[in-house]
Structure formats: structure tokens, C-alpha cells
Write a protein that binds this DNA or RNA. Structure first.
Lengths: 337, 337
DNA sequence: GGCACCTTTGGGAACGTTCCCACCGTACAT
DNA sequence: ATGTACGGTGGGAACGTTCCCAAAGGTGCC
């Protein structure tokens, strides 16, 4: 069953009484076709339930109508899952109106990275979406060198040459700090993200800027961590040891903030009475911590949608200048501050 | 740059001083090649950095070395995200050793379902993985009819004809109930999942079986809900209204259990003193509720890995009998019971 | 020494498209 | 009436691979 041979463009052409080329033109929406021929072809297509073979098409056009979304698997674990789910959803939305397929690549180790390079080399995808890039990540450079359209969510550094989209990390962090100051907090520490990632540096920068801008002294109130919950706990412990008098913490991610909450409770500090806590991302986690977490919302789904859109544009016109988009953040105030 | 034409199999053949076919044989691991020829070909491949064009290969072999993972987007939202992340990770693991690519399809609405049908019709994938199937889902039947290898995580009903993998829903639920009875609970209610899904029915069945098996009366202690947190809250409210004396609840998912916890607290019941709560899945959520949630762990990543493996087998041998695997669950006891 | 057989090899065809180009009318300007 | 232009059309070639088949070269046996 289903063994009946699929119709090809030739079958359709014969049925419609026209040539292959005319059928191809109808399919691809060329307007150099008479209404009569077009009608005949469309009828034949419907009758035969013809669907063009995209592999054959890909062979001659050397386009595959598919893009790859690359996610470092180490970071798809732990608490950062909601981020990736949202990005995936956004990308899928951005692709919805097109016939572009989404290929998901979880990069686990060097072996899979090689495999990915092959995938790319063999031109199985028209472009690549990269998420969660580190400063020393070899992949972006590799893709750039191969001339394959590439868009990053985030960036390697502030002078990123590839197209990229990210949220206003510094601005969001600064808003969080100003909110804490407005609430009368005196000593505002921060749990920063990895400093080999621009997100990490950007949020730390925003925190520092807001403090110095208000004439405060940020020294000694930074604990650099790794975006994990355990990391957040350890960082909070360090901060409490270094600055027992702190009355507020800005964590560069919700997950780390959740860890911080655990450590604060363990040490008998009340939130928000003794210490106010603000996170970053406004993932579902923020609504479920105890107490619910004030957080800087970043439009993750929109980031996904945007990188997809930008990539499609870049595929369509590879010579267009690279894009660099910053999406706004918004402070969502809850009980923790 | 990178504009230098990619080498084809012809280039390699010329460089190695052999015919196209010999190169093809070396690439595909045929043993009808002399050692000398093989060495020459391998050298040429390395020298030219040749990578076979998989699109061209796909055209002639009508295999694409890629499979689709289909996820209903409505269910990728809400709290069920950790489930999908884990499945994706598992599938990716199951594919790691092969050159099979993973295509992710989020099905939002009818339009995208049509698009998916096209994708499948046009043979852009060798097989399909289906997650979270409902009893009346048209897709599985469609795929079956097209003769495309398909594996389900879950099943439409207990007499599923397609290959499928699921965890021991009834057994896990029964274990949860027995645990609650062992803790001395007298009135054990349940928040069940959608009854048009086998997971929902299976877990409800396990709960009922364990109770009647112990000579207890399960009547009137069921609230059917929808796997969402809000649904869990509403169901809990209904149960408390119907049976104010209940002292335990088994929820068919962690997310619904989290909702139940909220409602219990709202109504001033202490957990676990007044009411014990057990969830199902043991996702990250379980570790983060207040109090931490006792839950039936299902090996989600392993499910993903297994469906991938089974699908690959089915693609390799389409006439092999369909598989039906049940993976064991394990009760993880925490503070909520 | 000839015949059959097996190993190794390479060229032709095919997969289903799109693109290039040449062709045929018809209409319009000269 | 002839030339020019252009909308519409279809056939040939190409994309890069695999598969089929035929042929070349060697080996062993009668």
C-alpha cells in the first residue's frame, strides 16, 4: 500500500497536456504562464495529489529550505530549559509562514560538533541559528568563514561581526537596580553570570552602571557564577560571608535567583524583609519560587522569532549588511522585592 | 571566499585516478575495493576535504537520513516544558551515533498540520516520532496509511497498532497509592489527566486498582483535569468540596500537583500534615514546590532515546513487527507525603 | 593451454527538479 | 509588407549521487 508510485512533474505535465517547464513555472509562481495553461496544470496537480519533491529541487537549486538551530546540550539541562523551549517556540513561529524546516542540533561534545560541521559543509541547511554563544566559541567563526548565513541569539562580544539579536541586558539590569534603590535598599549585591558570555558581562555592567550612576560604590559586592541553581546558592553564600549587611541581591538569571532564595532561607534571612531579590528572564520559575520572584522580563519567544526572521532575510540576500537588534526588557515586580 | 567550488565525487575520482563508482564504494564501505584503490581514494578525500552531498544521495536512494519529531505546540507551553526538553534531549542522544538529522515540528494549528503532511508526503523525512497523542488524533492514522515508519511516545489506546514506548503509568500510579496507604492515609483522592489520552486513563486506572485491591472504595474521589497548573487548582477545589475529609491526593502530573498545593495552602490545609500530595513525572518542578513534591519518576529522557532507536530500527527494516515497550517508573519520596 | 569463475573496476543511466535557450506566434511600429 | 519585440512555451542539459551491468584481469582446474 502507498506503493503506488508518487507522481512526478512529468506525470503532471502529461496529464495537463503541457511541458515540464510550464508545470515548474506554475509551481514556482512565475507569471509567464497563460491562464489556460495554469488552470490545466493546477487541475492536474489536484487530481494527482502531486507534491514536488524537495530533494530533487534542492539538488538543482542548492537550497534546502531548512535551517539548523544549534543548542549546546550542556546548557539545555539544568534550569535553563524554559529558555530553550521558548526560543524553539519563537523560532518555530518565525518559520511558520514559510516552507522552511527547522533542524534541531544539540551539541554534546566535540564529536557532535564535527558532525555539525559536516552537516553544514554538505549544505544540508541554508543557514544556522546559534544560541548561547561563549566568547571563545569556535563555531561562529567557522560558519562565518564558510560564508553560511548565521544569526546569533546573544553575541560573542560587543563588537560582534555576525548578525545577532539580544535583549537589553545592561538596561534591564540597571532597571532592576534602580527599582531596588527606589525601594530604599542600601547595599545591593549581584550574582553575575559567566564572564565569558556577553549576557553575563552585560548584566553585570548594567548593575555596576546603575550603582555608580547613583553615586554608590559597587566594590566587593559581586559573586560571579554559572547560571545554575547550585551556582546561585554558592554565590549567595559567598556574598553573605563577604558582606553580611547586604539588603538586596540582583541575580543575572532566575535560576540563580532561585538558588539564592534557598541559601537565604537556609541562613535565616527573610525575603523580602531582610533581603530583596530580583532575577532576570521572568521564566515560569519566577512565578513559582517562594516568595514569587521579581524579575526582568526578556522577550525570549520574540528573540526566537526575530533570529529566525533575520536569518531568512540573510539567506534571501546574503550580501545585505549584518543586522544587530536589541529587544527591550521590562521589570515585573513580585513579592521578593 | 568559500566561493571555491565544493569538490564532487568526480573531482575525487580524478584526483585518485579511479572511477566514480569506486569512490562511491569507498564512501559507502563496500568491500569490493582493493586496498590500493581505497587508500588512494581516502587520500584524495582528505586532501580535497570532500564531503558527499547528501541531497544528491537522497535523490537517488530516496532516503533523507532525517526524521521528524512532532510536538503539539499547545502542549509545549504551560508547565509541560520540562517533559519536552527531556524528550528532545533523549531523542538527540538516540540519534547521536548515527548520521540521522532531527527535524523539529511544532504543530500549532490545522495549517501547520497540512504543512507537516506535505513534508511527509514529499519524503523529506524517513520516519516520524509522535509525542503526546490523543485518542482522536488524525495524524497517526494518516502516517500509518502512508506507510511511513512511525513511533509514538505514548499511545492512542491500549490496542495501539503503531510502535510505541511509554512508561508504566498504571504501575507507577498504583505504587504512589500504596505508598500513601503505607503512610496511614485513609481517604486518597486523585486529580486525573485528560481521559482522551492513554496516559490520563492509565494513571487513573492504576490509582483505582490499587485502592480496590486494598478493599477500599474509590467512588467520588476523582477530579478529571487537563495537565495544567490552573486545572490542578480547580480540581483540588472540587475535591475539597466533594470530600472535605480527604487526607491524600495523587495527581497525574507534577504540574497539576503544583496547582493542588497552591489550592491547599489557599484553603489553609497543611501539606503533608493534613493532606499528603504525590505527583507524577518527577520533573524539576517536583524539587521546587513548597514543600518538595513526592513524585513517580518516569524516565523521560530514556523514552526519547528509545523511540528514536525503535524508529531507526523500523526504518532499517520496515517489515519487522511493531514494537511495544513499557519503561519502569520509580517512586521518589519527598516532603509532601 | 583453454575454460570458467571470481574480484575489481568504470561507464551509462536514472533519480526529479530547475535553468538556459531556442522557438513560435501575435501585435505593433515602421 | 516586413521587421522588431515580447508573452508564452517546451526540450535539452545539469545538479551529484547510486545502481546496474559489462568488461578487464587474474587464478585455478581439468
Amino acid at each position: 500500500m502507498g506503493g503506488r508510485q508518487r507522481p512526478t512533474i512529468k506525470t503532471v505535465a502529461a496529464r495537463a497536456g503541457v511541458g515540464r517547464t510550464t508545470v515548474s513555472r506554475v509551481i514556482n509562481g512565475s507569471d509567464l504562464v497563460s491562464d489556460k495553461a495554469r488552470a490545466a496544470v493546477l487541475a492536474a496537480i489536484a487530481e494527482l495529489k502531486y507534491v514536488p519533491n524537495s530533494v530533487a529541487r534542492g539538488l538543482v537549486t542548492s537550497r534546502t529550505d531548512s535551517i539548523a538551530l544549534v543548542i549546546p546540550e550542556s546548557e539545555s539541562r539544568l534550569g535553563s530549559e524554559p529558555y530553550f523551549s521558548a526560543v524553539i517556540r519563537g523560532v518555530s513561529t518565525g518559520l511558520a509562514a514559510t516552507r522552511t524546516q527547522l533542524q534541531l542540533v544539540l551539541v554534546r561534545d566535540q564529536g557532535e560538533l564535527d558532525q555539525l560541521t559536516d552537516t553544514v559543509a554538505t549544505r544540508r541547511v541554508d543557514g544556522v541559528l546559534l544560541v548561547s554563544v561563549h566568547a571563545d566559541d569556535p563555531l561562529p567563526g567557522l560558519l562565518e568563514e564558510m560564508g553560511l548565513p548565521t544569526v546569533l541569539a546573544g553575541r560573542r562580544s560587543s563588537c560582534e561581526s555576525l548578525s545577532h539579536v539580544h535583549s537589553d541586558n545592561a538596561g534591564g539590569a540597571a532597571a532592576a537596580v534602580r527599582h531596588l534603590m527606589a525601594r530604599g535598599r542600601r547595599t545591593i549585591a549581584t550574582i553575575a553570570g559567566p564572564q565569558d558570555m556577553d549576557v553575563g558581562r552585560g548584566r553585570l555592567g548594567g548593575w555596576r552602571e546603575a550603582l555608580t550612576g547613583a553615586g554608590r560604590e559597587p566594590d566587593g559586592l559581586v559573586a560571579v557564577s554559572d547560571f545554575t541553581e547550585e551556582g546561585g546558592e554558592r554565590a549567595m553564600a559567598r556574598l553573605l560571608a563577604d558582606a553580611p549587611g547586604l539588603d538586596a541581591v540582583f541575580a543575572a538569571s532566575d535560576v540563580m535567583a532561585a538558588g539564592a532564595l534557598l541559601e537565604l532561607r537556609r541562613q535565616g534571612r527573610r525575603v523580602p524583609e531582610d533581603v530583596a531579590v530580583v532575577g532576570f528572564e521572568d521564566s515560569i520559575i519566577a512565578r513559582h519560587t517562594n516568595p514569587p520572584l521579581t524579575s526582568v522580563r526578556q522577550p525570549v519567544e520574540e528573540i526566537g522569532e526575530t533570529i529566525a526572521r533575520v536569518l531568512l532575510e540573510e539567506i534571501a540576500d546574503p550580501d545585505a549588511p549584518r543586522r544587530h537588534l536589541v529587544l527591550p526588557t521590562e521589570l515585573i515586580v513580585r513579592a521578593s522585592s
